[in-house]
């Protein structure tokens, strides 16, 4: 990450504009134990209260890291019932990084967001149909499988 990903100016700009970057060694206590860190790199997104909302383990290049962070930012907002703000991050992810590994989960979470913000179950079915069409082998397509019966 230090030699490949973090020096990328797109990554620097994204992190500086959207996040507070905090870096510690994996042997830093009590943080490593508090967050049950067993491998590096482990990236965790926290809200201002220190609550975890998103986690990844392992290397990411710039093209994978930014969509992963967008997904995490969406989760932070979604977990706070800020559905409009969450959708903003998820839609940006899907528009700019549709080929990323984070995209299928973003579609799943978009459907859930829209359902929870409106009470209309149709977005869940639409999310499944989009996943089936674009990412048929994704685990998120399998998880959305029951939604095909809605509406």
């Amino acid at each position: 990450m230090d030699t490949v990903t973090y020096p990328q100016q797109s990554v620097v700009t994204f992190i500086e504009h959207n996040l507070i970057p905090l870096r510690v060694g994996s042997d830093t206590q009590p943080l490593a134990s508090d967050f049950a860190v067993t491998w590096t790199p482990t990236l965790v997104l926290l809200d201002p209260q220190g609550k975890e909302h998103h986690r990844t383990v392992g290397f990411f290049d710039a093209e994978a890291l930014i969509p992963s962070l967008l997904l995490g930012l969406g989760k932070v907002e979604y977990d706070s019932n800020k559905f409009k703000e969450a959708l903003g991050y998820l839609e940006k992810l899907l528009a700019e990084y549709p080929e990323s590994d984070s995209a299928p989960e973003a579609i799943f979470l978009t459907g859930v967001n829209r359902y929870k913000s409106t009470g209309n179950p149709l977005p869940l079915k639409e999310a499944y149909e989009q996943l089936q069409r674009m990412y048929p082998a994704s685990t998120w397509t399998k998880r959305a499988y029951p939604y095909r019966l809605l509406g």
Partner: peptide, 11 residues
């Protein structure tokens, strides 16, 4: 009003 990116790296 920005979330935290906490990076545990190999020291």
């Amino acid at each position: 009003k920005r979330p935290i990116l906490l990076d545990f790296h190999n020291p």
